[in-house]
Design a protein around this nucleic acid. Structure first.
Lengths: 352, 352
DNA sequence: TTGTATGCGTTATCAT
DNA sequence: ATGATAACGCATACAA
């Protein structure tokens, strides 16, 4: 039971002037007489007038709003990206509508439709785990709706993308394990339909091959990002006839339960199994052992994503050719992968 | 550069009928002739017609939308609450607009204003860390805008609230520490302006007093929820002339860095210091030692929050008297607080 | 400097 | 069963 909100019509009536004058005064147009303006402002203030954004947007046929859909905001990576995206968007005068797909293809499709109906002018999108069919995204592209994908994208899509060099990152992570004496390196991958998971898998294979350690994918297991599933996959991995002595995981969120399961089994980290992961969440440094992880430049990725979208939003002449930005990663070495032999340690100390 | 979206007017023109007929057909009104309806539907489908939600809402003067403002979605508690709230809201035919205050009072005020302008019909709100002045919320109440606060609320506000029994929870957590042999129990509290922090502080004091262990607040330190600050406070705590042998923290998010700092200092957990915390995040069971924590019924809290809001939204006769729901918590005991003396252990084994 | 009139895309109240 | 037409709250081109 709330009273009807005050409109410019109310103000106009009270002041005995026309609504257009009120409208102009409120928006600070220069042609308005100072007295009129101050009278309008006073009343608006006093009545706590709030412009109706719906009406405003409808009248201008513009919302200056972009829709953001991510799989799940409880993942550090996505909530951090959201913050970065929001900052950049606000900076550019846009506001943001956020939705979660909850890793569901169906929900993703519905969210796109909802946002479309809410007249968002463009999309920033990271695909759900269960999205293999991309017809819904293709339709956006066909309609020339400005769109940028980040992190979780699909191949063969004529859309702008922002991502890190997943292959290279996995390659250097794997090499790091090799340098630390690992010979049987396992990979806890993500769902097979995730491009980024496959790219990281490729980097992992390449590194092993380069060092003559590739023995097929017997050490590759796929996880679905849930804790239970990861625990199971890890146990399966460790009960292999020849258990691994090194482990690469596709995400910190997978590394945590994996490390837990191994510790429960009496496996020492890094001595028995060295671990490297992806994402470098703030928590990864607090675990014991602290977790070596690939860090992504989240801040910059968010800004870049918005930049690519703005380029499309503000394009005047025809559809824009999609751009892809590949950003660099950094391996943050911590305890979970450091197996310093005493000789190496001494060398390190002496040479510094 | 996207082409103008199709409207009912376009469909009407193409079919040579009036827009009202199209509108009715699209909404499945019974009075429409089957042939007309199917013709309209066909074209709408073919052209991928999307109703303009702005226009719809403006015409109906209803948005069926509720605004949710939380401090930060990267906290597990808040993103989990959001999921629960969204589910319940959708269930009731409402959609949700989410905003983060980023723990800033200013931002919180702006978000409220933005949501108000977007014509949300009600608010679900958890106050920012920096919110001590509550004029912005009071104004909502004065305007009779439906509103429910959860978790982070302020006292003396005539609004509906959902929370857990913080005092009781802290009391039983502290008693648990005492039962496990702790005699000098410290409390890493949150910012002093957070009501929930003070309530937990009260429960902590009461438990100590009851057992004759209260020695003033020399063991109470306030954290601001950042990792760095928590590390510092923990180090300060441990360098007290008589360091604590038990630790209660106001949040898992504070417990993680605290445990990390202690381990760095060679403090053994739980032997030297036993730890109990709040929130029972999924990760708390993966740390080593696994973390004893107070669990809140997030799913139920979200549903209850929405229920209280709906009661206001759908009230017809005058303003509703605010309701407060206090929900139960559960102490989930794990390794960080379990100091089983060998005798107890044997008893436990023998009696089972 | 101000007012009038029209439109934004839809719903809803009249008629017909 | 369908068609005009007036809202909804605001912006804006055109008049005055």
């Amino acid at each position: 039971m709330k009273s009807a909100p005050v409109t410019i019509k109310d103000i106009a009536k009270a002041l005995n002037i026309s609504i257009s004058t009120v409208s102009r005064a409120l928006r600070g147009m220069p042609e308005i007489h100072p007295d009129t303006r101050s009278a309008v402002m006073r009343l608006a203030e006093e009545w706590d007038y709030q412009p109706n954004q719906l009406a405003k947007n409808l009248a201008k046929s513009r919302t200056k709003t972009i829709g953001v859909i991510v799989p799940n905001l409880s993942y550090y990576f996505f909530s951090a990206m959201l913050n970065s995206i929001e900052d950049a968007a606000i900076q550019a005068g846009y506001s943001v509508l956020v939705c979660q797909s909850n890793e569901s293809y169906l929900r993703e499709t519905m969210q796109i439709q909802n946002l479309l109906r809410s007249q968002v002018e463009g999309f920033i999108l990271s695909l759900s785990r269960d999205t293999s069919n991309c017809a819904h995204v293709e339709r956006l592209i066909q309609k020339n709706v400005p769109l940028v994908l980040f992190d979780r994208y699909a191949d063969n899509m004529a859309a702008s993308k922002v991502m890190v060099d997943n292959r290279e990152a996995a390659f250097k992570a794997t090499e790091h394990l090799i340098e630390n004496g690992c010979r049987r390196i396992a990979f806890l991958a993500g769902p097979p339909q995730l491009v980024l998971s496959n790219q990281r898998l490729a980097g992992y294979r390449d590194a092993l091959t380069k060092h003559g350690l590739y023995m097929g994918d017997q050490y590759v297991f796929h996880c679905d990002y849930t804790q239970e599933n990861t625990l199971m996959q890890t146990l399966a991995l460790m009960s292999l006839p020849q258990p691994p002595d090194g482990l690469l995981t596709v995400s910190d969120r997978i590394a945590y339960p994996a490390m837990y399961a191994m510790k429960q089994k009496g496996v020492r980290i890094p001595d028995d199994v060295a671990v490297v992961s992806f994402n470098n969440e703030p928590l990864s440094s607090l675990f014991s052992p602290s977790l070596t992880s690939i860090s992504q430049p989240i801040q910059e990725m968010g800004m870049e994503t918005v930049r690519l979208l703005l380029r499309q939003l503000e394009a005047t002449d025809g559809p824009i050719t999609p751009e892809t930005t590949v950003m660099p990663t950094q391996l943050v070495v911590r305890e979970s992968s450091l197996r310093m032999k005493s000789a190496d340690f001494l060398n390190g100390v002496l040479s510094s």
